[in-house]
Nucleic acid binder design. Structure first.
Lengths: 337, 337
DNA sequence: TTTATCTACGTAAACGTTTACATAGCTTCG
DNA sequence: CGAAGCTATGTAAACGTTTACGTAGATAAA
């Protein structure tokens, strides 16, 4: 199985390796006849350049890394779709890494990526990552980084996010206008900026409508769906006056449904639920779920575009290139009054 | 920004590059004191080996490719989860490519991958790929391949699938036992083996229960959700006697729900629906969807294990290593009698 | 005609790693 | 004491590509 490489092509064509290489790159230094000959043989022998040799020599990998907590999640899978779309168009390859919201794992992954394996990185930080030393290290090393949704504020680069404060405010107001007076907040993770910011919107809306903020109505994510459901059930039992739930992340909305079903609380009659979600079947749920939906696909595309643009132009990415896209509120049965 | 590589370490330690390289690999040829010195400095300088140089030299990339139609799909995202889990454990990196069920795109992707970029490949073929020349080419080239779910029968390698015939049979029988007499079949894609095999199970169940097979009750996937819904609505209008729908793939089940809602057909009273699906919220739909659920995560793990085992042992993969996992039927309201 | 410029190609070094081979200094054994 | 073997290290080639530099021949300019 004689590998077909430049040397092989050069031998068969009685040319030097250099000329073959240049011909395949359409260099002006090669005559058009030679180019034709080379390309014909390359096609015939099904020549494909060795990506590693090329990357080593040019110090460019044509590869970007995507680091996300999960892929089995509508938001992230849509983002990946967008990223892959842009990457494919520009001839980039996409390496994917899952942190499972685990700090250790995120550290290990970023360590890999300092080795020049990728030209750039798109990242949504793990919810447990309070420490940023590993990200700093990575940032100081080569690859360009763009954060999306779950950003790392300690690093001066571009972020692609959504209008989380506003969305938190609108979601809460939506519940209030639907008649809710005791609204629970289900928090992603206290050390994630999106959790905090959405919560600030929630608090502001309460204040503006003369409702007290009560931190015993805040339930934070446990990382496990079963346990989350149990926590929510616990809250609903302890505080029977709760008539609204704002889930700051999709799986907490789902857990809320399970909790209400288990306790026999009618949605929306007794408890109204709104949640951040990219669930395609939100409208088919029983009852249809009112969602704040982030433009996940567009976020992926935008983040990838910022990154690839910076890579191609060999320019550093500045925080000024950050983008804030708008989420949309889809009012459905789960918050009907 | 002096890159830290073996040469740099060697200079600072007054050693040769070879010794440093060997020390980092825990070679028995290096004294333990030297190893310590080397490792200490490597850690201090945050040395990370250049993946491309290493891959070039060793002709091993420690990278596998995953080619799937979509990632925004519960089945595939769970599979990817499983794959990533196994890959991560074995220190492999995962490149991901989406075909969007597009033949041209699949060809382009397989072309990339002949270049030795990956040591192996996990693949679910695009539904439109009737021609296998590109896969043959890839197969003849280096990387080991394992297909999962949507296999390419023309290639003699291991496949990881589920008991599709049996599942098709059971799903159909489930509808018949629930009282259905005119069961529509929603086909993934005629040239996909899974579409055919599931359909054979459907036909066999009809036959065994004395029901006629009627190919005008078969609707095939159009690739677009809106149009699929329209097709199903069309069928339901044309053939008002249809009292059961068997969707051989998740998004067709969802489209069936939309179609029934649009036409005001009650599920399950007038039309019962069962579908292949890995939708986490199937039980929360209105009404809860009866599903045949494939063990997607396990399939991903199994496929990756077969692949990585073959790569590490440098052994060819034989069709004999193929695995057939069992899907599970979850009976819910959508097929209640 | 001489010189400069251009065209089309070749030579060889480099990218960072791995590894076959060589070797210098020991130890061991007959 | 010499041969053999071991230990710990160095030398250098190789992986396949890209590219700076060199050059032979042709053409153009002076």
């Amino acid at each position: 199985m004689n590998q077909v490489n430049l040397k092989r092509l050069a031998q068969e064509l009685n040319l030097s390796i250099a000329t073959v290489s240049r011909a395949l790159q359409d260099s002006y230094e090669v005559s058009s006849q030679t180019k034709e000959r080379v390309k014909a043989l390359a096609a015939e022998l099904n020549y494909e350049p060795n990506a590693y040799a090329s990357s080593l020599r040019r110090n460019i990998s044509k590869t970007i890394g995507v680091v996300v907590p999960e892929v089995n999640n509508h938001f992230f899978s849509l983002v990946i779709n967008g990223i892959e779309e842009v990457a494919h168009q520009s001839g980039y390859h996409v390496l994917i890494y899952l942190t499972h919201d685990d700090y250790e794992r995120e550290v290990a992954i970023t360590q890999y990526l300092t080795g020049g394996r990728v030209d750039g990185l798109l990242m949504s930080v793990a919810s447990e990552s309070q420490k940023f030393a590993h990200l700093q290290k990575l940032y100081v090393s080569k690859p360009a980084i763009v954060f999306f949704d779950r950003v790392c504020e300690a690093i001066a680069t571009a972020n692609v996010t959504t209008n989380d404060y506003e969305s938190g405010y609108l979601a809460t107001r939506h519940l209030i206008e639907a008649g809710c007076r005791h609204i629970a907040y289900l928090l992603v993770s206290g050390n994630l900026s999106i959790g905090r910011i959405r919560m600030q919107g929630y608090q502001a809306a309460l204040r503006d409508h003369g409702l007290p903020y009560d931190d015993t109505l805040v339930v934070s994510d446990d990382g496990d769906d079963e346990r989350n459901t149990a926590r929510i059930m616990d809250l609903l039992r302890r505080r029977p006056e709760v008539d609204g739930i704002f889930a700051s992340v999709e799986h907490l909305a789902i857990s809320s449904y399970h909790a209400c079903h288990a306790l026999g609380r009618a949605i929306p009659a007794e408890v109204k639920i709104i949640g951040f979600s990219n669930l395609g079947v939100a409208a088919l749920l029983a009852p249809a779920l009112t969602t704040i939906t982030q433009p996940a696909y567009e976020m992926g595309k935008a983040a990838a575009q910022i990154l690839l643009c910076a890579i191609e132009k060999k320019r550093a990415i500045s925080p000024g290139q950050s983008l804030v896209l708008k989420s949309e509120l889809f009012a459905r049965r789960s918050t009907a009054s």
